[in-house]
Design a protein around this nucleic acid. Sequence first.
DNA 1: GATGAATGAGTGTTCATTCAT
DNA 2: AATGAATGAACACTCATTCAT
Lengths: 210, 210, 210, 210
Amino acid sequence: MGRSRTNPAPTAPVTARGRRTRDALLAAGRELLETRGWAGFTPEQVAAAAGVSYGTFYTYFESKDDLLRSIVRTVADQMFTESLVAPETADDPYVRIVASNRGYLRAWRNASRVLRLVEQGAGEDDTLRKLLLEVRELYVHRGAEGLRRLQEAGLANQDLDPRMTAIVLGAMVEQMAHVIYSLREPLDEDDVVDHMSKLWAAAIGLRERP
Amino acid sequence: MGRSRTNPAPTAPVTARGRRTRDALLAAGRELLETRGWAGFTPEQVAAAAGVSYGTFYTYFESKDDLLRSIVRTVADQMFTESLVAPETADDPYVRIVASNRGYLRAWRNASRVLRLVEQGAGEDDTLRKLLLEVRELYVHRGAEGLRRLQEAGLANQDLDPRMTAIVLGAMVEQMAHVIYSLREPLDEDDVVDHMSKLWAAAIGLRERP
Amino acid sequence: MGRSRTNPAPTAPVTARGRRTRDALLAAGRELLETRGWAGFTPEQVAAAAGVSYGTFYTYFESKDDLLRSIVRTVADQMFTESLVAPETADDPYVRIVASNRGYLRAWRNASRVLRLVEQGAGEDDTLRKLLLEVRELYVHRGAEGLRRLQEAGLANQDLDPRMTAIVLGAMVEQMAHVIYSLREPLDEDDVVDHMSKLWAAAIGLRERP
Amino acid sequence: MGRSRTNPAPTAPVTARGRRTRDALLAAGRELLETRGWAGFTPEQVAAAAGVSYGTFYTYFESKDDLLRSIVRTVADQMFTESLVAPETADDPYVRIVASNRGYLRAWRNASRVLRLVEQGAGEDDTLRKLLLEVRELYVHRGAEGLRRLQEAGLANQDLDPRMTAIVLGAMVEQMAHVIYSLREPLDEDDVVDHMSKLWAAAIGLRERP
DNA sequence: GATGAATGAGTGTTCATTCAT
DNA sequence: AATGAATGAACACTCATTCAT
């Protein structure tokens, strides 16, 4: 009779067992999403993959979308965390670019499959769209700041708009991660990092520190 | 996806009226796919949008997947055709790069929404995956050839692997098309072409013809 | 992914066959509602009782609630229609009261089971609540008008408020219909009509036309 | 409704704390039933409203139906109790009728929401149907006896069958309680009592004690 | 060939009840 | 006794495909 949510919303698990189950569902959901795409992402299959019964899914997640949001949040958090690790201490700007490209590529490796899927499934979901934007902004912002510093130090082409450049070069890295890890083009990761870095350095007119 | 067949296989339309109906379904299908994504892509809605009755859909297409393949083939054909048009007659390499980037961006503008969707929905469909690869290969190949010619003429950095470079720079353009046209970031198209061209030219170490 | 209505809403049947199927579903739904209450009122059971397959239900009704609304509309329409039939031409006011009570009782006989059920299931449905109010108002209004005419003719107690009296006496008839036809108290219908009429006549102080 | 049992049968609470918990569940169940109807009447919500954990529900009640039966028993008991509270101290029969009508209305005020719901949900439950009948019989019997005494005293119309009359007039009161308290028609309670009493008195041909 | 109806397996969600701690 | 987790059958609804006319 169209009740619309009569049952209380799931709450965070209280016991250790509950936490384990919830984590298993989250992991299974992400795994399925990455390996089988939307086709494998049904509460039934997620529950089965997590080794729990059907109904248990709804003990921890309000809906399929709720799980999806949790997965995306997890992926985004991982990207934020990774981006904090080892903010290149190298002195040589080119070495820093290589490290940064390698780092970006790795971050996208784990995230791009999920984020690509979501980009299309998230037609209406505001929470998701916002998360997606935040993730992109994180990288664009960092890239733009890095370039600005190089420009100020006189080590990069002054003509480039930092933000636009960061967007364009970020697009390159993101799409390459997709090509390598999702489309599985047989490209060597080191080779790709090497080329991307050379192209990137040349593109911004990187100069050796005098 | 991939049921067994009991229906009479649709044959190519014989009459002009038949061709018109088939074309209307194709166009409606593509339109819906581009505007509403998978959600709007059902035989019933496609038929309605094409102004024919539900059952008629199966007179012209064996299945929903069959229509999808036809749409992708159409999109791919358009890209091939466009890529043949006026292979820049300009003499100045930089002007050619700008023209080429603008051309690529436009080609992707019409294609990227559909191709992105298909990339993920086409889990198992070999026909589709092959088409997708062909499209990408078209651009990679052309890009690599262009670079090789510049290198041979001594106008570009000889250290770069032409194919890898074409892949990386192609990734940049493809993703930018997605960012602009699907994610609708408010970026000026000319501005993007300008920056991409500058970065591209610098990246490959483009030199003025002596 | 929470699409929310992607498929077109069911339209009125075009062919005779379609009309038959829709009618069968309506009839089966009402029958089940009357005999088994909410428990029997599931799309699956309705479809089975109508002799069609599950999916066919949704060819004609947008939802379970949609069918319910249609049923209630049918019931209400029948009550309106019946109330128009043969507005007793008898001259004697008491005879008219008897006829009217018998008519009301019969009208409620067919309606009360459904209307009672709906009264509680219709928590949120505005369409339904409005229909229910209209049905009640129909009878209250007619009763009040009848009394007012008698009062003006000096044939009934002038002290009574016509509307309040109609509400109270209408309540009596409605509830008696429920007692007899739904609770199946073994009471003779004629006997009930006889007593109700006597009580009613006395209650309003009905006087013989001089 | 009516599963087989594997659970230890709940026993009557021994400790004071146990009794308090059981009472809290009963009260919460009734409250939910009255305010939200069937939609709010789930073991989980009842437990939450009573401030105990989910599983505890089944420590005190064998099933949801068990709680329902207990609630109905409570409601019925209240009606029996209230009906004993010796209203008729007045000497004047009309005053007694007013008092009685007011009393009946109040009794139904608290009961009618629950009893109406149960009347329909109790499709198969014998215990419930019996309880419902007993409640009605209580009022019919009392009404019939009252009328019989008046008839014997020559103060009421001798032609009326006491039981049938009590049924009909009882129906009137019960339904009016529903109209006022559940449907929330904006009627003044005193006004209703006044009219019902006048109608009732006139209906049975009540005469002043000579 | 075109049309509208019919089909039924599949999916997301609820909830009464049982279980392990 | 009390708690929170687990279970799975039941239900509402969707949609690709087939069928009858």
